[in-house]
Nucleic acid binder design. Sequence first.
DNA 1: CAGGATCCGTTTCGATACTG
DNA 2: CAGTATCGAAACGGATCCTG
Lengths: 140, 140
Amino acid sequence: MRQDTRSTCPISTGLEIVGDRWTLLVIRDMMFAGKRHFREFLQSEEGISSNVLADRLAMLVERGLVTRAGDPAHAQKAIYSLTEPGIALLPVIASLSRWAQVHFPATRRPEARVFLDGDEAAIAALQQALRREHLASGGR
Amino acid sequence: MRQDTRSTCPISTGLEIVGDRWTLLVIRDMMFAGKRHFREFLQSEEGISSNVLADRLAMLVERGLVTRAGDPAHAQKAIYSLTEPGIALLPVIASLSRWAQVHFPATRRPEARVFLDGDEAAIAALQQALRREHLASGGR
DNA sequence: CAGGATCCGTTTCGATACTG
DNA sequence: CAGTATCGAAACGGATCCTG
């Protein structure tokens, strides 16, 4: 029972997890802009709205890419932090970012400059920093 | 590190281009499953619907990731083919795929096995094959 | 028959007002 | 400040229809 009308593709993509319009943007903000609080994500220039942001953060926590620290019931602190699976997305985002800069330079904002893809040392260093931060703020 | 109300992130992501739910799936099918025709994309197990598929293909052609060959006005052949920017996404998809397999093995379908990330030679070879195919089927 | 357009019910989004 | 409630707008998904 291999082949019916539905043909399958020989790779899995992970797009079920990060394939929507906002999820990767939130993760990017945590990685490269050091954002930790609900309010900070709201202020990203792409302009996510609060209900969608709440939804995506909840999903990220549920799937284990992010943890939420602070009072579980009601907290006005709410610190979000990347877990290991989340941190592991760094090379993917770097790779995508480089693709965009090379093939669609027009979409690049003036301030956009970090260019990690291919720089293994820099990637590893940033990942280490994120790991340390994760541990510091309530880790795992 | 500067801060106003709209804080910006130091990298551009390319998500404006490939950040929706379907675009990367179509590209993946072209890369790894050798799909070329409208009908074939429709049959992917994720189940894209024909109106959405038509829309995404048109957008991919417009943005230059894909070309459409056949009679420009009305053709019942309609062969879609990846351009260089499209082909350049291969490492990104490979990287994402590996991430998913490592951190979310549960999402992996049994048939999913290709594992190119990190295998530079294999990536380059597949890209070469795609370039040849692109030239063969109406190139540029 | 293939590519794709059209119609329409359902889901998701986006903006903003609101609550603890 | 961290979210929720609400509601109109847009996108989706499915079926069907149209055109070579």
